[in-house]
Amino acid sequence: MDEQQAREDIKLIRDMLERTRRASAESGALFIFWGVWLILGLAGQYTLLFLQRYDWIWVNWAFFGLTGWIVSAVYSIRRGRKARMRTYAQSATAFVSIGCSIGFLLTAFVFPLLHIYPYAAIPVNIALISGIMQFVQGGIFRWPLLWAAGILWWVGAVVMAFVPGEWRGIVLIPLMVLGYLVPGLIFRARFRRSGGDRAAE
């Protein structure tokens, strides 16, 4: 072993770490999906409010929530099966996402149906949980944009406290765009640029 060989070994280690990083790059697909899906859900909610069909609002959210979770679960399982490797960051992200999904289910459906708090509190709680999810994911991916998105969700939750109940959903729209769509599109662009799909093969 000489200096030149040592350099080659260190280069090899770096190359392998870079390859793992590229193969595990976040595709952003679920961020984009949830951003679009929840904005459509909000559009459905305000259409029903406009039509004064208040009883159907929970059906609207049950549809968007349930289909969204099914799509996410199927996508994640299929991607997991195709993946040739799995990093600790991906495992941590999966656990955070599952944990927060259970939190969303409880906060958006179970507790309001049990009359633990009024329906107007749902968007505030959703924003709080989304903030935790994005802030933690920002830590896992070491990406300040997601930390900022997490903080933005919490600021949005505070803003909602000063907005009349039926208009709180409107505050969620810019949060969906900045918290899901923008990071999702940036993840997608990075993923394509780094050849993430090919690197995983």
Partner: peptide, 12 residues
């Protein structure tokens, strides 16, 4: 590779 990945398959 395995230092940064929780697991990796043979083909990868």
């Amino acid at each position: 590779i395995l230092a940064s990945a929780a697991q990796a398959d043979f083909n990868f």
